[in-house]
Structures are given as C-alpha cells and as structure tokens.
Design a protein around this nucleic acid. Sequence first.
DNA 1: TGTTGAATCGACACAGTGTCGAATAATTTC
DNA 2: GAAATTATTCGACACTGTGTCGATTCAACA
Lengths: 211, 211
Amino acid sequence: MMFAMSPTGSRRKRSKGDLTSQAILDTAERLLETKSLDEIAVDELTSGAGISRSTFYFHFESREAVLYALSERVVEGLYDNAALWLRRGSEPPEDSIRRAIAGTVSLWRAHGPVLRAAVRARDTSELVRGFWSGVARRFIDSTATQIEIERDAGVAVPGPPTARSLATVLVSMNETMCYSLSLSRKSAARDREVVDTLTAVWLRSVYGVSR
Amino acid sequence: MMFAMSPTGSRRKRSKGDLTSQAILDTAERLLETKSLDEIAVDELTSGAGISRSTFYFHFESREAVLYALSERVVEGLYDNAALWLRRGSEPPEDSIRRAIAGTVSLWRAHGPVLRAAVRARDTSELVRGFWSGVARRFIDSTATQIEIERDAGVAVPGPPTARSLATVLVSMNETMCYSLSLSRKSAARDREVVDTLTAVWLRSVYGVSR
DNA sequence: TGTTGAATCGACACAGTGTCGAATAATTTC
DNA sequence: GAAATTATTCGACACTGTGTCGATTCAACA
C-alpha cells in the first residue's frame, strides 16, 4: 500500500486502490481551498471520491496522513527552491536573494491551501511536525552556510548574531509573510511589495547595505 | 451576562455566576498549558469547575468565547507594551528597541499558552480574529509612525520599503519568534539570544546600522 | 412569603470518529 | 480457466463530543 508515485504521465497500470487514493487526495486539496483541515469531515473526502466513509480508513490512517501525502506533492518544489539559496555566482547578493524569495512566494501562491494546512497541523500532528521541521532545517542550514561564506569573505556584517540564529529568524519571517500573503486575493502588486520588503530586510540584516 | 471585569482585588459582592465563570476561565488557562483549544472538551472545563457540562453554555457561547475572555486578561499588558514603542527620548535607538522586544518576549513567557491559542484561533474564530487584528494594528501603527519620524529626521534609512510595509514585516516576525520561543522550555540564555537577534534585525532594517 | 430572575441539571437529538467482520472485486497461481 | 489469495469496499456498531430544551433549584428581595 502507498507506493512511491509513478512517473506523472506514465501508462504503468495503476491499481484501483491507487486511483481511489488519488481521488481522496484531489478532493482534499480542493476542499482545503475553502475549509481548514479539521473542518473537513471524512465523509466529505469520501463522497467526493465516490466511495463509502469507512473505506477511507483502508487508504489513510487519519486526516493528517492525507495532509502529509499532499505535502509530498509540494515538497520537491520546496527543495528545489531551497537549493537556489546556496548558489550565487558573480551576481550581486540582491538578485540572488530576490530570486529566492520570489520563488518561495510563487510557490505559496500555487499551493497556499496545502502549505497553510501543513503549517497549522505542525502543532497537532507528530507526523507533520517532523516533515516540516525537515523542510525548515534545510532552508535554515542553506541560509546559515551562505551567511558564513559571505562573512568570511568580508562582504556580510559579522556576528553576533550567529549566522544560524539570524538564518532562523529570516526564514521564519518569510514563512509567516507567505502564509498571510497566500490568504489574500492574488495581486501581483501586493506580491511585489512583499518580495521587495522581505528582500530589503534580508539585505540589510545580512549585508548591512544601506544603498 | 458577561460583565466587564471587576477591579482585581475588589470586595464588591460577586454573584455566584461570576465565580463559576472565573472557575471556568481558570480551568481553561490551566488546560491550555497542556492541550490546544480544540483538544479541550467542554466537560473538562466544567468538571474542573465542579459543575455539569450543560451549565457551561449558560456562561459562554462557545470554547472560542472562553478564549476571547481569557485574552482580555492579557490585553492591557500587550497594550502597555505597544505604547513603549513610540516613546524614545534621547536614548539610542538600540536601547529603545531592545527594551520593547524584551518586554514582548517576557509577556509571551508569562502568558504563552493563552497567546498561542489566540493566534491559532485567529484563523478559526471571527471574534478572535477581530480582537487580534486590533492588537496587531496597534503595534504596526506605532512602529510605522516611529519609522517615519526617524526617516524624516534623517536617522533611518529612507524607503522603499514603505514604513508601514516594513513595520508589518517586523511585527509579524516578532510574533512568530515569540510564539515558537514560548513553546520551548524557559531559558534565560535562549531568551537573550532571541532578543539580541531580533534587535539586530530591527536595527539594521530600520537604521541600516552595521556597528 | 411569595415572586422573580439567576444558575444548574439531566435528557435528548445530532455530528462525527474509528473498528470489525462480512461481502465483493482483482490478481495470481497452478 | 478455476481455485486460491489478496486488495478493496461496505454497513453496522460502539464511542465521544456537541448544543438545545424544559424542568428544577437557589438566592435575593419587596
């Protein structure tokens, strides 16, 4: 049960159970656009997928497990994004940071409901907490490493605060802003404003740049 | 029903109902140290207060209403704290900002469970959302005003970003860090580290200071 | 002391959860 | 391709919790 995902457009035969699981996941993702996870009843998930309520428990252990599976659809994008953090060639820091932040914002725009539910479930579900702390650590580690490199090169403002401590604050700040941004109606202008503001805070905090 | 609080140590006669309401609130505050609001069942609240479950609904409309009442116990402290933001005499910005941030941190240390529950319920309950957005606006307004003053005086880095936009990000950042800090075991060292880091980010973002 | 409103209670109807064993569909094995 | 095995589905059940009602008790006071 619960195989790793087959290549997206594959014509490998999919067992009936896989189809049902997918239908449940699709329904969940759709419902999360409207309600929070604990407002969604199991029979809303299953009637959306055309099966009876008790069948749900054959496919998933709990509502949180659905969310966990849903999160994995997004996780690669998140990881790709984290990787962008490290890489900085000869371009100025501002471009590199803005690009990374803009990437995160658009990722939240695309998957807001799932990401918000995951953040909320962090406090509730052990499974989701573990998942999310892995994601966060990856971002924080990348950032801290990068800060240290820039400090060693004499480009960034030296500590204190610790590179890691600074990285933690900045990454959390991004998450919080993306969360609340994804709650508001999509607006390119507003998105740009948030990206600009976050970029400015990052630049000034790390490099001490004052233009 | 639901009178404004009587002066704390008052010997005005308190009706029996008031005592029961208080008992419910006390129980709720105690339980919130362990569980989240929606993990707390109504009969845990009432058995803690020595009354039957249905009596609860005579005193409060819902669990959220209890949280709202609980929040009001904390709100003055929160508002006092916001007031500190504006006032800055001849002392250097660093002292003023550090003092304000340290105040917020210790407030979250004192009332962490209630404040965390309120933040979480923001997404769920209209009542709590309104309450909290009022608190947030107060902080943001104070901060934005102060930033503008400092910019006009030529001390702070000019925009963009807008004073208000910058203030929003910085205040949210503080809230997020206080939330997660209040989840960890109390540690003076850790508290100081967080205060230092937040202070550094505020200073660099607003004043561009790089020491 | 009798009237009134505040406070409490138990009983009820309702929503949703998670588990079980039996029934059915799909796949494998011989 | 029939039998055996495994995957999937279902309805029924026992539970836990919610919110509402009308009946009852309590306390104040005219």
